[in-house]
Structures are given as structure tokens and as C-alpha cells.
Design a protein around this nucleic acid. Sequence first.
RNA 1: GCCGCUGUAGCUCAGUGGUAGAGCGCACCCUUGGUAAGGGUGAGGUCAAGGGUUCAAAUCCCUUCAGCGGCUCCA
Length: 760
Amino acid sequence: MPTITLPDGSQKHFEHPVSAADVAKSIGAGLAKAALGCKVDGELRDLSTLLDKDCRLSIVTPTTRDKKQDPDALFLIRHSAAHVMAEAIQRIIPGAQLVYGPPLEDKFYYDIKFPDNRPLKDGDFPAIEAEMAKIVAEDRPFTRYEVAADQGLGRLLEEKNKYKVDNAVRALEAQAVGCAAAMTGVVNAPVSHGTNRVEERSFRYLSDSTLSFYATGTPGQNWEDLCRGPHVPSTGRIGAFKILSLASSYWHGDEKSDRLTRVYGTAFASKADLDTWLTQREEAAKRDHRVIGKALRLFHIDEDVGQGLILWTPAGSVLRQELMRFIGDELNKQGYHQVFTPHIGKLDLYKTSGHFPYYKDAQYPPIPERDALDLAMGVEGTQAAALAAGLPAGGCSCAELMHRLDGVSARLAAQVNERTQAQTIGPDRVQPDEQLLDGYLLKPMNCPHHIKIFASAPHSYRDLPVRLAEFGTVYRWEQSGELNGMTRVRGFTQDDAHLFCTEDQVPEELLGCLSLVKTVLTTLNMTDYRVRVGLRDPDSNKYTGNPENWDRAEQACRLAAKSLGVPFTEEPGEAAFYGPKIDFVVRDVIGREWQLGTVQVDYNLPIRFDLTYTGPDNQPHRPVMIHRAPFGSFERFCGVLIEHFAGSFPTWLSPEQVRVLPISEKSDGYAKEVLGALKVAGCRATCDFGNDRIQGKIKVAADLKIPYLLIVGPRDAEQRSVSVRARGQEKDLGSMPLDRFVEAIKSEIETRRADLGVKP
RNA sequence: GCCGCUGUAGCUCAGUGGUAGAGCGCACCCUUGGUAAGGGUGAGGUCAAGGGUUCAAAUCCCUUCAGCGGCUCCA
């Protein structure tokens, strides 16, 4: 009979199997009332779980001992809220098929297939929430029951919900794999996906497997759902909930599969917790780089220029310029050579590198060469035809190109019309022939250009490593729905470099790269990042090169990551197509993750471009390449930086470092002197000669998050002093001699101090 | 690209079929004020673009463009 060990180490003995709820009751009425679920030997379970053997038990309640919200409780509440929401939606929209509804870190969702004639709109939210409120008020118990696999599957098949049948089969497969793994010691055995014949697959698992269902109330009478659980004891225990948003999603995350509607919601133990969360979200939204970027005029995106193309305004350009200077200093220390290369290159170059075939759909269309364009248009004998038409043979003006493309689109439109009418859809008709396309590509990556610089001269092993760095601007046709302020754009500048070295030099060079990334993050006080080692996915064929080299490259990355001394995760499938990488990933204010710095080991591009150096044996050898970008791109990095500092940048980065505020026009003369002294010292300073009162000038400057304000009036003029007000201080720092302030801020800027250092 | 939402003055937003609004900002005037906005006057809008319904459209419908939240993708 069970002996239950509680979190404090105390033990309780029972003469017969007991439920976790009974144990809670035996400890105290208060605990029993607050209990939402339990953990048995560390595993989250229903409160009704029957305990029939010795175990460790903890009762899950909404708050932990230190009065924080318990993540396990929130998991139970959100998982349960997802069921309640699904029931409410099915009441309102008959025919809605449930797919999958898990809890997340701070919300939950349910993927649902809605009838085509009845899509869900956000206008439906109030009705759904009202229905949910009813279900919660009814306080129906979540009742778990298990049925034999064949019975459960049969039922789901009757319901004709292929999604749930699929879920059930996956659950059964997982059980089967679990058993097999237990017997053979094999873990992570691949589970087959994607077959439509789930009925057939399912029968392999029927023997002794079970499926669990949860009824919201009485099985057979109330709403129920195939579900692993666990759940809170009853619907009434879902304290507060809210439906948040709608999204489209794909079945199995596969864009070629069914499109589903994802309904997001969140739930908390109490209304107060929900309100706090909603308020926090609103607060976070205020430091969104798009909001601050607009308020502080840091960047602009203009429809007329194009989606995802950043216009750096003067203020934002200061940020970028300072970062470039900063990294430039570090490059000199580490023996890099700076290079410059053009924004375009021949299409063939990217065919060789592999970028064009791999990312064809994610690039701006090629800029065709005149002859290729003629061919695409079906013009015979291009040179002759051009001459006959009186067009210049050696080039193609913009106007001429437009004229020709107009002709092409007209022809394409005509062909499409013809095709639609004739109902003869086939790939052999309208498709412009890719083979004929030749010309230039806006560069999607800098590596091919740098490779060509490396290859332009012979190299001895004595020259290596060669480190070529460039603030290289690249262009990628990111999907329109992916674009996001500065963090996901179509044109961006990487602080890119490519290191060409011997295989022996790889570890040390990797360390150098990683230390650069760390220097960057430390200087900017950005400590909240995670490190991801991106490895190849053994099941995928998207990677180029041979497995031996991949293994070596992956091992090098692993060792380098270890040397960082911070936790990292290894993630298969996250490698680049040519090699594994070490990424530094940060979160934005909304919780989305962005890759910033990256270091990549590449055995493959040197092969594709047939790069060599001469070894000590006087024989040609293959170098290894390292790609690295400590910031990633200036656009994304600045976006994240804006949010990190909420616009309150360290002085060295601030677009405006000091503002002089004369008390009245009487002090304008002295204010000009102060401004002059600041400028001579190299500070980015302005003076507010407006006729606002000093309070007004301070408010305006404070909203602009300027680090230092110098208030100057007759008293200061007399003593050649300034009254200093530092950003974020409630009061001023008092008066100090002008010279002393100038010296202090100069040193603060030179040392790239992350906080404000001028003291009274 | 997919689903939902949104688009009104430089910015933030109100306006839901009947003459286009507010606050901030901007210009000018008064005020010369010592630490988070003193007062007044004025300029500023093809209501994202195009089409439709209507006697009448910022408002209703359709298309396109762009932004936002997700999905998918991310060299």
C-alpha cells in the first residue's frame, strides 16, 4: 500500500490506493480547495490520479510558495481552457473539426478546420467567450477515461475527423515506439509522417494500447475530446480567460498540407493575473523598435521605396555608424582586411555557390542580360535583330528595358488568357524558360565575392588565415508576411567576414570569432541571449557536401561552443546548407526570437569554387572557410538594440548626446559658448533656443531620451558652470564647471560605457 | 505566400451613409520663465489607391497596395 513522499520530505502511509485529491485533503482543507493537479514522480497529472504505489507527490496550486504563479498550474489551466474554447466554438459553428490544441508558454491555441462557408472572424470572439463563460459557470468536471485503441479509433473514424484519427494514430505510434525503445534502448526512433492511410497504419498498434479521452462532464453526455491530459478538476477552476487572435496554420506544419485556422487565447488563475499580463503586453508594445523608431525618428520604411527596405534617417545612421566604428576597431585588433564589393554579381556565380538553386524563391528576380532578355522574348538572332530594330547592341537602357518588359507581360497575359480559354494548363506553355535566363543577381550573400578576392591571388599556407571583412549589403525576397520592422527586411547590411584557413587553424579562428561576438554583446550589456549550435538534419537532403566533412565541421562547432562557457543547445536542421553554425539568439519585446551573431564552418564552398593554397609540401590543399557576422545585420541588430535600451542608448551610441537648455533668451549667448565647447570636444550636441519655459524644454528633451541636459541660466554663465540633468534622474545632478563636464562625457564616450557615468 | 485585423493631418487617435475633427508637433504673436509642457492665433487632409452600390461614401461592397498578430520560410 502506497507511501507518499511529499515535497518537504515528510511521508504519508495509506492502507489502500488513494487519489491525489485525497492526499491533499488529508494535508489540509485549504490545500484541497486550491489544488488544480499534481505531480507524481515529477510528472504532471490529474488531481484525480489514483496512487497505488509508493511515489513522490506534490500538489499543484495556482501559486507557488514564494507567491509566484505556478507554471504547472498555468499549463493545466490553459490546456483546460483550450478544451472549453473548442466546445464553445463547436456549439457556435457546427461542423468545425478540431485538430490540435496545446498550451504554450503564455497562452494556448486550438487548430481547427472550419467549414469553408463559415470561416471564423474576430467578430465571433465575444460570442465564443460568452459561451465559454457559461461552460466555466457550469463547473463541469474534466473526466478522464481510457478505451481500447480499436474502440477509440473506431469512434474517431465514425466522426470522420481525419485530424483526430491522425492524432490518435500518432499517440499509438508513440506508445509503440516507447515500448520498443524500452526494450531495445533506442530512443528518438523516427515516427513516420505524412501518409494519408492512417486507418491502415493504426491496426499495427491495436493489441494492448489505449486511447484517453476527456469529457467536460459526464462521458457520453457532455462534450469530449481525444486528449492526453492532464486537466484541472473542473471547468470552474479556469479563473480568467481571453481569446486573443486568429491565424492560419498548416496541418503538421506543412505548407503543402491542409490550411487550418489557429485560435489563440490565454488563461490565468485569476482575473487579476490576466489583467496584469495584458498590461505587461501593452507596456512591452511601447518599447517595440517600430514604435520607438518612429518616435525618435531612427528609421523609415516607405511604401514608395519598397517593402522591407530600410531608410536610415540621420539619427538612426548615427547608431549604425557608431556600431561600424566599434566593430572596425575590433577587426583591426584581430588582423582582418576590409574589402568592398559590388551589390550585384553574375547569376552563374550564385549557381556555382549554390545560393541561386537553393534559395531561388527567396531572391529578387535576376536582372537579365540583353541577349537573355531577347531570348526570353523569343527574338531570333539577338544581335542582328537588335541592330535591325535600330537598338544599341552594346547595352540596354532602362527605358528600352521597360518597353521590352511591357511587351513580355502583354504576351504573357495573352497566353494566360488563351490558356484559360482552352483549358490546357501545362508547364510547357507560359513558363519563361529558366535556362535562358542569364544575367545578374542582387547579391543575396557576400561569400562568393569574398571567395573571388581570395582566389584572385595564389596563397601559401604561410599567408593563412586570410580574413576578409566587409559591411556587405545583401538583398533577399523574404515572404511579404514575414517582413517585420527592422528585424526582418529585404535589404540589409551584414558586418560580414570570411576567414580562409587551414583545417588546423579552424578551432583557434572559431574562438576568435566567438570572442568578437561576446565582446559586442558584453559592451552593449546584452546578456539575455541563448546560443544555438545548428547541425544538419540527417533526414533532409537539403545539405551539400560529404558527411565526413560535415562531421568534422559539426564537431568543431560543438567544441567552440563549449569553450564559450555558456549553455547552448544543439539543434538538428538549423545548419546552413553548406555548413553547421553557432548562432546567438535573442528575444524581442513580444517574445519572438531573432538570430543575431552567427559563426559558420564551411568545408563546401571551397570545394564548389575549387579554392586552394600551397602547403608546406608544395602541393595544393583545400582551405576551410569560416563565415561570421557578430551583429548579424545592422538592421536587425539595431532593431533589437532599440528594444534592449527602449531608446535610452548609452551616450556613445546616442544620436544626440547632450542638449543645452537656456533658461531664457538672456542666457542664449552663454548657451552658444557651452554648445561650442561640446562640439569642439566631439559631442553630438544641440541647443534648444525655443521660447518654452525650462520645464517644457526638459519634457521635450526627456521624451527624446537624450542622455544629458545642461541647463544654463545667469547663475551658470557667471560661474562658467552648467546644471546637469542626466536621463532617468528625478532630480538634477547639480552644478559643475563646464570643463569638468566636457572631460567627463568625453571619457564616457571614448570608453563606450553602457550606463551614464557623469557624477556630480 | 496563407488566415485574421488595420489604414483619417508630420505623430497619436475620434468620427459607421448627409459640409473633415481633437491633442501633440509646426509657423507667428504674447510671455523672459531655474528642473517632466505658460497663453493666443494660424497653416496643414484627393480620409492608402482603384472600381462599384447610392440622390449622397471616410463610412457599405469588390480589387490592389501597405502595416500588425500568427503560420510557413530564413543562406
